[in-house]
Design a protein around this nucleic acid. Structure first.
Lengths: 383, 383
DNA sequence: GTCTCTTTCTTCCGTGTTAGAACTAACCCA
DNA sequence: TGGGTTAGTTCTAACACGGAAGAAAGAGAC
């Protein structure tokens, strides 16, 4: 619907906040006249607004930065896990407006779609322009090809959710969605390529290269989880000693400390104990930090990307043992290579659902038709 | 010089051999009229020819496939190692016409440039349209920023070679060049992404994602070389036990077998001994095969690419222990994931120099100026 | 105050690229 | 010989783009 240049403009304004036409010329490689021409329809239809950036003392005509019209639309993002729906409402930049968690009652596609619809309606968001749904598994063209934790095969989830909610629905693999969120609105904004590693109940892995997320069939399979990271260490359920799952998942870490202390301890308590100096917890956390650093280094080495975004609900580990992680990264990295940039997204569980919302936002941008913008958008008074 | 569409056409015809306009429409996303218009200047100026594809029995007007004019130009490729220059002459599709090896006498930039020029002239190629040079190190904009094995820093090698030879010279990192060669003309043609692993005197590693080679600053540093692959095993010069260099380089393999047999044995003899069933050689080769498989699996897992091109002068190992390599790949790969496609380029040392030639070819395509095609090209009679 | 300078943005217009519609070319087959 | 089929071409209208020149809007100098 939009031409390439129009879409590039829309994306640039969405991602880079208020931005002047002159900066857009260099960023998009277009001439000033083209920017004037391209921006006009977006302004006329109320999709963008022109800010009057008050004079900052510099000489010359003041810039009139373009921005997305505030309150133009809202989006919902839903991450499906085996146990729950994590639901967020966001603005057009995936900024968090609300976050809720709902236990998942049903597992059949229709039931899940109905619960997604109920949860999204429960957010009470007006101007909902799209819903994004993410889950672990292989996803293509709005269909869940394969989702092991729900035992789904070839489920047309986007169509089901659209039918329930009446707004466009987008589906994506949870890790690809998270990578997209980090790339557009998160810690990876402005970096051409990076690795995404999540730790929590499982190990997640995704990749952005040359400014685009790698969208492989494998994304759902969890290939990063069984990379060997320690010669000694616990054994994962697949029988790998010292693999990423064994060293880094919150369940395995909690189990190790529980065994040592001979009482049940959960992950958060492990982190507290380690912070307080408990020797068993400290040992386990330190070894996990070493393993995380090794995983980051290995991923950076093999993907040739000098940056990593760390996320997931278990990422509290990093704050506790940052020095060890960094030391482990450096140890497995050639000293002549650029040091790996580490960016931590500690927003925990809501990051997953924000990732889903990002997919909905991206699809909404691609869906814009300047000839068919609903007139309801226009009456909103500009602030 | 060429517009985007013209360049896309030129590349498609170069890469995909004789190809009809109708197939180009779908491949390039252009309309038939555009193909007619775009192809005409290339035909008029003698850069392309129209084949009359004799009727194959199908109904309808026969196709007139476009192809590069035979004998249009030749290219030279030079790979610099610490000891020698490996030099090839190729046609426009990087097809091998000649291969020579010259010991490297001098190490200073001017001396190397002079030896490159002498070696290339020695090939006796007419219609030389460009020279590509590749070497291990960091390269940018025709300059060698850093080449440890020659102890070079910021050497304008392209300019030096151009001055000596009088034809355009292109410089690239050896592994990026090899990856480009595999992507355009080699085993990776038609695959959107793959990993390149070379074994030989060292371990090489490169990456193609979304149809483009990853061009990182790190490419020259050899990051793939010290990935841990075996808990036991020999120690590399950097002190890593069981790392890729220790397990897979021809020097390390030969040294292990030499130690076992208590006599000096070179790499080729190791392969012969293993093929003949010698127990020491077999053990070392089998362990190397396991390590190679593990490296491939790890790279495929972390890059999310389901294919690997194996190359390098030591790749004879693969033919000898293919089953073990494949088994090791499968063992470290989630069974639900797509199996890794293995493509072997067993052309040995000349593959490196063909990679360099590929870079020259790519640059030559980007340099085409349809307004300034030399008239000398035209008198060649079409076949 | 007003004049000049600087920078941003806009208007005008020529150029070049694109694809739709209609057409021609070249072959198979009956 | 004439219809069917596919490939490729010609004509033309639309349109996106950037260069040139101009307008807008402020800062600073006098």
């Amino acid at each position: 619907m939009l031409s390439d240049s129009e879409r590039a403009l829309a994306r640039a304004v969405l991602i880079h906040g208020p931005i002047s036409r002159s900066e857009l010329t260099s960023r998009l490689g277009l001439s000033p006249p083209s920017l004037t021409r391209l921006a006009k329809p977006f302004l006329d239809r109320g999709l963008m607004v022109e800010l009057d950036d008050r004079s900052d003392g510099s000489v010359g005509r003041p810039v009139r930065p373009l921005d997305v019209r505030p309150g133009l639309a809202h989006f919902a993002g839903v991450k499906i896990t085996g146990q729950a729906l994590h639901v967020v409402a966001t603005d057009v930049r995936a900024g968090l407006l609300a976050y809720e968690e709902h236990p998942l009652q049903r597992r059949d596609p229709e039931g899940v779609a109905a619960e997604i619809a109920r949860a999204v309606r429960g957010l009470g968001v007006d101007r909902l322009a799209g819903v994004g749904v993410s889950l672990g598994g292989a996803v293509r063209d709005g269909r869940v090809e394969f989702a092991p934790f729900l035992d789904w095969t070839d489920v047309p989830l986007a169509a089901l959710v659209e039918a329930e909610l009446g707004v466009p629905a987008s589906i994506e693999n949870d890790l690809v969605a998270l990578a997209e969120a980090e790339r557009w609105f998160g810690r990876g904004a402005g970096i051409p390529g990076f690795v995404v590693i999540t730790i929590g109940a499982g190990i997640g892995y995704a990749l952005v290269v040359n400014g685009q997320a790698v969208h492989s069939r494998e994304a759902g399979v969890g290939l990063g989880g069984h990379i060997p990271l320690a010669a000694t260490g616990p054994v994962c359920h697949a029988g790998h000693r010292g693999c990423a799952e064994a060293m880094l998942t919150s369940g395995s870490i909690a189990a190790q400390v529980s065994a040592a202390l001979q009482r049940p301890v959960d992950y958060d308590e492990v982190l507290r104990l380690a912070a307080a100096g408990d020797p068993a917890a400290t040992t386990v956390v330190d070894e996990a930090a070493d393993a995380l650093g090794r995983l980051v280094a290995m991923a950076a080495n093999l993907t040739l990307q000098p940056a990593a975004v760390l996320a997931g609900e278990g990422i509290g580990l990093f704050a506790l043992a940052e020095d060890r992680v960094r030391a482990a990264v450096a140890a497995d990295r050639d000293p002549r290579a650029e040091p790996v940039g580490l960016y931590v997204d500690d927003s925990g569980f809501s990051a997953w659902a924000r990732g889903a919302a990002t997919i909905a936002i991206q699809d909404a941008v691609d869906r814009i038709d300047l000839d068919q913008v609903e007139q309801e958008l226009l009456p909103i008074p500009a602030p």
